[in-house]
Design a protein around this nucleic acid. Structure first.
Lengths: 133, 133
DNA sequence: AGCTAATGTCATGTTTTGTAACATGAGTAG
DNA sequence: CTACTCATGTTACAAAACATGACATTAGCT
């Protein structure tokens, strides 16, 4: 379950791919970034590289807009969400011992190394298209 | 579970991404294609677009080469695999159970020792080229 | 009408990818 | 040893994709 999240956050998709996946124009995608709704990484050549999580978020944004929300409204939504998330994490950590935390961090570090051979899943049964996370 | 395979065969990754994911040079990746080991789709701009299954296969190829197999050896492996796969499908059609088939084919499997179950489908069987335009 | 938010479009420059040709190092056969 | 093949590197040039910034448009509001 940790690995899955890792893969979902790997920035590997160029904007052209994301356009097809989301049916958004490059202009729209860059605009949402300019409005701080997404923060794709850049490769050495300065190209934007997106993750599957970014794609999910773009699809969410699309839905919110279609529902009549405007950009700043959407911004609020995400602000609230990350506040809640942060708090959850803080509470989580307060309940753990020091060595637990060290173990967690080490594990995260080790997992950044690379893609493992085939067997593993890139999939995400519930998450790809809609509000879910 | 059907959806997972679908997603894995979506051709969305440009060669630069695949280079990073596999740590192969563009030259190598194109060469393996030239040797018919992979068949990435092309987008309208004639750019190669790879699926996660393609990435898996490239990693396999890398392993095989590291193990001392040469390209034509690898080709044999995949040829055999797809033969077996075809045969399995034919037998399924004839009403045999999967485990029946496994017994029947056991000898052949032993002939090509030590390889993984057949993995990737080759030619956009599910019409995912629509993601490339 | 005037304003604004979201998006389209165009111009210009950089990066990535395509193909093709030639080069090279390791291994093998003669 | 020489010649050959295989897997890969390198280089050169063209086309496609992308970045950025400016200006245009459209729909909804006041």
């Amino acid at each position: 379950m940790r690995e899955k999240e890792l893969r979902r956050s790997m920035s590997v998709l160029p904007i052209g791919t994301v356009m097809k996946l989301t049916d958004l124009s490059a202009r729209q995608i860059r605009y949402y970034e300019q409005q701080d709704l997404i923060k794709p990484l850049r490769n050495e050549g300065n190209r934007r590289m997106y993750s599957l999580n970014d794609v999910d978020r773009l699809l969410e944004i699309k839905d919110y807009l279609a529902d009549g929300l405007n950009i700043s409204g959407i911004k609020e939504v995400y602000k609230k969400q990350s506040q809640l998330e942060d708090e959850r994490k803080r509470n989580m950590k307060k309940g753990l011992t020091d060595s637990d935390v060290r173990k967690i961090l080490q594990d995260e570090f080790l997992n950044i190394g690379g893609l493992k051979p085939p067997s593993s899943t890139f999939d995400d049964p519930n998450n790809f298209s809609k509000f879910n996370n």
